[in-house]
Design a protein around this nucleic acid. Structure first.
Lengths: 337, 337
DNA sequence: CTGAAAGCGCTAACAA
DNA sequence: TTGTTAGCGCTTTCAG
């Protein structure tokens, strides 16, 4: 096996306590002693066994990240953002991918994070009361990305405001008959974006004194196919909308396809704006509302580290700004790709 | 704090050794005793401290996954595949995201996986000799996704064969002037796909007795922009190709854009086929070569678990099949979206 | 400034 | 079948 703290102590001619202190940069070690220890550690290529250190100190130097789907764009970005900050601080990132409702139940039934993390990062999940309670019972700081919860740190955008900006943009272009394509509010994974963005849509209409029209609101799955289906239903209306606000870019891609299949032109016949600024939104020339994704992960990780350093600190809520990105799918004056 | 093994032992009226045995399902425990222990553990909501267990047993029950970019489609899928298998086996997944060349160097300089994993999963990286040596020095099983290495388990596709199928498809459609858009062989992250796919392109031409033509080979970054630039250079040729094989779907998206901007029609003026079957390939109606991605992660994770269970087992190499997906970007007889 | 020694909460012989 | 006990490799008092 590899070198242990004893080996280093022997080689440096000091006690293991001094090795421990030297290596961790604790005060009260003579500079020359420390140098000797560092040299010994280096020649033996020594690293402390994290498990022994964790057992002895009680600190795990690990963050658990709970994510619905690692393999979706948004979540991957958030994790990348968080990982960078954590790695820098020498924290490990333990990944829990829920995958579906069954996986989510399994996670909360078994609570595999117990006794193994100093903090928990929950990505884009609206937690049920019992779930929140279960996580709080871990007695470690909790940070949420995407929405807030009492007693937890949180980093998110203002979905409602973002949606309002998108719809205002359509109104500014002269549209009055504006459709909505959105996700179900009762999504099984309980994402909150759908509800909030729907709300923003309604507020924008109200502010412009455009009457609400439930016929123009098409709800479906928060996916490409869901968007396509929803758009089809709007196109089948006796009087179809001249513009649609779609609650996510992925749904918007489906909407674009439905519109093109119908032989209609974008944006002349129907203008489309999405939400997220997904990687391929630019490629598809889709107007959208950009949200900082990696940054949400990074900020949440930072919040956790701060909370671990100072457990008495109050939970903070951080709201990051969104940005309207105008492309050719809404504005014909923007040159197409 | 939460319950310890002692608490359970006391409540069940047995020794801690018996608790340990009962909870881990070891033999030689009387059924009634085991039942009593399980009941006690349940009422105390007890889980063993993983750190104590790991220190005592020497098994970490965690796998380190080293990935260039969590936030890219391919890698996210691989991780999702691996995570599922590992979670099922009660293994933790420790994520190391390299992010760039500097991150890669930092990783290998510090080797943060030391003393903390029972196995290492390396995703899509061609390891330099020193890197491979460093990982082998960990003395734990090593599994690679995307390419092989002596002494390591590996799961990958046959990139060369896949590329050949793609180019054969173009040849079958009557094309003779077939361009290539590919990544640099000397990619800083050292992905191997570029070289292998390039090779397949050449082999397909040779097999069809179509002379190679270096002018038709455009090399760039393995990204959307790289593909766009490369396509532009092909379009600028005095005699442009009638079809292009692009080594990745993401590059192909860029190529599609360059072609459309030039006012040319796909596939009538130029046929385009990509590689990967990236999520949005269907949306963009792009013909491609599909590779099983999650499955590669799952199979590699399985290989690691097997190797941990039986360290004497020889490293195995698993090659998964690819599949040609014909869409409208190459074949006009396939109805467009 | 440094060392001795007592844990941290388990697992794994070894006895009984 | 069960209990006793010696570690696992550190961190952290507490003396010195």
């Amino acid at each position: 096996m590899s070198a242990s703290i004893e080996d280093v102590a022997t080689l440096a001619g000091v006690s293991i306590a001094t090795v421990s202190r030297s290596l961790r940069g604790l005060p009260d070690v003579a500079p020359t002693t420390r140098a000797r220890v560092l040299a010994a550690a280096r020649t033996l290529d020594y690293v402390a066994s994290p498990f022994a250190a964790r057992l002895a100190s009680g600190r795990t130097a690990t963050i658990g990240a709970i994510v619905p789907f690692v393999n979706r764009w948004f979540f991957g970005e958030v994790i990348a953002g968080a990982e960078g900050i954590l790695r820098e601080a020498d924290y490990d990132l333990l990944l829990y991918n829920l995958d579906d409702v069954a996986g989510r139940e399994r996670f909360f039934a078994r609570m595999p994070v117990r006794k193994r993390v100093d903090g928990v990062l929950v990505i884009s999940m609206l937690l049920a009361d019992e779930e929140l309670a279960a996580l709080k019972a871990l007695n470690v700081p909790l940070a949420l990305v995407g929405n807030g919860a009492p007693g937890a740190h949180s980093v998110h955008i203002d979905d409602t405001a973002g949606a309002r900006v998108a719809v205002d943009h359509l109104i500014g272009l002269g549209h009055r008959r504006i459709g909505l394509i959105g996700g179900r509010m009762d999504d099984p994974m309980r994402f909150t974006a759908a509800g909030d963005r729907h709300q923003g849509y309604l507020e924008a209409l109200d502010a412009a004194a455009i009457p609400r029209n439930p016929d123009l609101e098409a709800i479906g799955y928060f996916t490409f196919d869901g968007g396509e289906e929803a758009m089809k239903s709007l196109l089948a209306l006796p009087e179809r909308p001249t513009a649609v606000f779609v609650e996510s870019d992925e749904m918007a891609y489906g909407a674009l396809r439905a519109i093109r299949r119908e032989g209609l032109r974008i944006p002349q016949d129907i203008a489309v704006i999405g939400f997220d600024d997904h990687v391929t939104a630019e490629l598809l020339d889709l107007s959208t509302v950009r949200q900082p994704v990696q940054e949400q992960g990074a900020k949440a990780a930072r919040a956790l580290l701060d909370a671990i350093a100072d457990p008495s600190a109050q939970p903070r809520e951080l709201v990051l700004p969104t940005e309207l990105i105008v492309r050719n799918s809404t504005d014909p004056s923007v040159p197409p790709l």
